[in-house]
Structure formats: C-alpha cells, structure tokens
Design a protein around this nucleic acid. Structure first.
Lengths: 230, 230
DNA sequence: TGTACATCAGTGAACGCGCGTTCACTGATGTAC
DNA sequence: TGTACATCAGTGAACGCGCGTTCACTGATGTAC
C-alpha cells in the first residue's frame, strides 16, 4: 500500500480502491462531506481522476464509501467508551452506565471529528434502504440494545419503552449538532460538559419516570466525567 | 417591486437589495444553503451578477441574509403554535403547553421547510458574535422564556433549571435533524408523531423530576396533536 | 422652468477555479500454448 | 522455459458546467444654478 501523495514506483497502483477510500475518509475528516471529490481523492492517491472510475461508478459511490468509513469510526469510538466500564454488578447501574457511555461516545466523536460526523449524515444519502426503521446504522443499534437491557433490569417500565430509542438518539444527536455546527460551538468546555450532564440526567429521569437515586446519579456523572485519555 | 424572473421595464430595478434577499430566501427554501449563490439570486431577480455587488459585499453576506430570513420564518412558525393556545388557567398547564407548542413549532418548521431549516444552521456561519451564550437566536430565546415560566409556576425546581434550555433545544433539534436529513426521513407520519410525543413526555418528566399527572399528560398530548390547519 | 453635470445602479465581457465525466490511448500483467 | 496475445489498470487531453469576482463601460437619476 503506497502512501497518499508520494509518487509510486509501479505503473499499476496495486490497491487503488482502498487507497481512494482512505483518501476519501481523510478528506471527509478534514473538510466534511463537501470535500470528498473524485478529483481530490485521486490526487491524494497520486493517480489520474480517470483511474478512479475503474473502481467507483461515480462520485456518489465514493462519497458513500467515505460515509461507511465515518460510520465505522464512530461505532469504534462508542465501543471505546463502553469498554472502559466494568460490566458487572447491579444491572440497573450497569444499564444506566452503558447508556451514558454510548451517548458520551457519540457526542465525543462528533466534537472530536466534526468532518466525519457530518459525513455520517451527509445530505441525500439514505442511511440504508432498510424497512421503516433504519437498521444498519450501528450507533443506533447500540442505543436499542442498551434500552432493552434497561427494561430487563427493571429500570425502564415496558410501557415506557416504545420510541425511547428515538428520544435518546435525538437528545445526543441534537447536543452534538449544536456543538459542532450550531450555537454551542462557541461555548466553553465547562458549559458543554454541564449541558451534557444535565441532558443525560433529564433523559434518564424521563425514561424511568421517577427521580434517580443519589447512587445512580453519581454513577451517571462519573461515567460522563471520565477523562478521555487516562 | 418587480416579480422574480420577469424582465423589468426600467433600467434601474428600484428595490434590488430586497429582491435579492427574497430570491436568496427562495433558493434556500428550495435547495438549502448550498443553492444560495450570487449568480442564481441575480438570475432570479432578472439582473446581472455584477449588480448584486452594489448591494452585498460578496457571497457570504448574501448567504447571511438568507439565513436571517430563514430564522425569521422559523420564529413566526413557533409564534403560530403558541398563539393557538389559550394563555389562561393554571400556570403549570400553561407553561407545559407553551413548552410543547414551542417545540412543536420548531419541529414542524424543520420538516415542512427543510431547506430553510438547514439554512438556519448553515456551516460556518456563526449564529452571532454574542458572549458565551448565543443571544439573538430567537427560537432559543423562546425556550428560555418558557422554562423561566415553568420555574415560576413551580413545576421546574430551581436547582434543575440550569442548562435546561440546552436540553430541550437539543432534543427537539435532534428530532428535527433525524427527520429532515437523517434516518427518520423514511419513517411514516405515525412513527414520527409517536416519537414526538414520547420525546416530549420524557423531557417533561425529566425536567420536573417526577411523573406527570394524568391531567398534565393529556394537556401535553393534545397540544402535540393539534392539526396544522384546523 | 431649463439645462450641465455629478452620481448612482446597472451592463457585458472576461478571468480563473475545481468539479464530474468521457474519449482514445498505452503500459503492465498474466495466461495459453 | 519462452513467446503471442488478451486483458486489465492506468494516462492525458478535453468537454461543459456553475461558481465568485473584477474590469471598463453606460444608461438613468437627481441636483445646482
């Protein structure tokens, strides 16, 4: 695999498709979905634009590949947050902890990688052609699993379960959006952290339908306050 | 004021600045912020691109004008929802009703006018240069006022007040985003309505920190179920 | 009331840019005999 | 093992597009006397 912009030795690239995908992902990371172009990706791979058409039907297909990459990295970021939690002990505490971890991963990815985050939701790219409810969006599936656990643990009453995935997704997505492209962009670190904590507390209470115990609130906050590189 | 594309009689336009702003708004409405260009606006106004430079310093200024228009219309849409509520009776019921109305106006505007909605949050346009917390974003201010009312009415405990505006904004913004550009786009009317109701209920409970009375829940749902053109 | 002239708001042609995409081509690879 | 040739993966030039922006200009407006 030859590195991005260096002139390569061989006439044949050897792995152009992957090189183009990597270039597209890097473009997305730097400049968002609008920066993902056939010409720029080819340039980064040290190749003529025409060559890209051997591997992609056109611009849209390349953009879609960039989006898939972005999704993968987001999923990985969420996994990192889950992985730092001990998956033992009281199922309610574990469930709420996982909820916080999943949301925190989502939010941190969005603010750390705004270009990739925007690419995940790039205009006009249908997330999938799945039935009514969007399946292969893995970040979403993580939310679903966490909520199911919370039902099983007895925290989330079954009658409050329907559509709850949309609520948690919307909350964290909105928070991310406002922080990345919106007015919260100019807010300081502490304001954003406070907003994150309040939002998660409100959603947690709203899901359960009753106040949090002090213990659960402490758990929640400690997950949200975990430093990124310990 | 001559209409958009028709050839005008006089050499001087007479009201070109406003015509360009109106054209920009229409472009934004139809195609989002990316469609707002100097050339397209001039075309729609029946004028040479150069002429636009008599009234705007450049592209960015025109885009900003389109954004202001979009914001105004969004504010108006929210006012419509508030106006249909009787502002009398129990302050808690009124406060929660207003919360629902404000959010509903926001959400409906987003789904009814996705182009304008996206323009409100167009990339790279700082909402304002205000201090830490974003002032002239009027939709946001409506949320602040409603929350203050809820504190005064005794529904929202003062210690739960800080940052609550961010939470309600994030929830409804996320819901709107997921419905406009995201995976909820393909969901049916009923799914979206159900998601809206659940989200508002969860947020309302989370704000107050305790379950809703049946009466309040009924109020909330009835506001959210109001038909748009009665 | 009439005219000279400054000012203002447009025109029209042109610039350079990066894009997606297509064309006829050519250098490298690998397979059949 | 060696060679003819089909196939594959690139090249290079060109197309047309819409964009932002600038230039020297000209037609219309309105003000001073």
């Amino acid at each position: 695999v030859s590195s991005s912009a260096s002139t390569r030795a061989t006439y044949h690239h050897g792995d152009l498709r992957n090189a183009l995908i990597a270039a597209a992902a890097e473009l997305a990371q730097t400049g968002g979905p609008g920066s993902v172009t056939i010409r720029a990706a080819a340039r980064a791979a040290g190749v003529t634009p025409t060559a890209a058409y051997r591997h992609f039907a056109g611009h849209e297909e390349l953009l879609h590949a960039a989006k898939d990459q972005a999704m993968e990295r987001m999923t990985a970021a969420m996994d990192v947050e889950i992985a730092r939690l001990p998956q033992t002990g009281d199922p309610v505490r574990r469930g709420l902890g996982n909820l916080a971890a999943v949301g925190l991963g989502y939010f941190r990815f969005a603010t750390a990688e705004p270009g990739l985050f925007r690419t995940c939701f790039a205009d006009g790219l249908s997330v999938a052609s799945e039935p009514v409810l969007f399946s292969d969006a893995t970040p979403f599936l993580k939310g679903v699993a966490v909520l199911d656990d919370l039902v099983e643990a007895g925290y989330l009453p079954p009658e409050r379960r329907p559509m709850a995935e949309v609520t948690i997704w919307a909350s964290v997505h909105g928070l991310a959006m406002l922080s990345v492209d919106g007015p919260l962009r100019e807010a300081g670190e502490e304001v954003m952290q406070a907003a994150l904590e309040r939002t998660f507390e409100i959603v947690a209470v709203g899901l359960g339908g009753r106040p949090l115990t002090d213990e659960l609130r402490e758990d929640l906050l400690s997950v949200l306050r975990a430093t990124h590189t310990p």
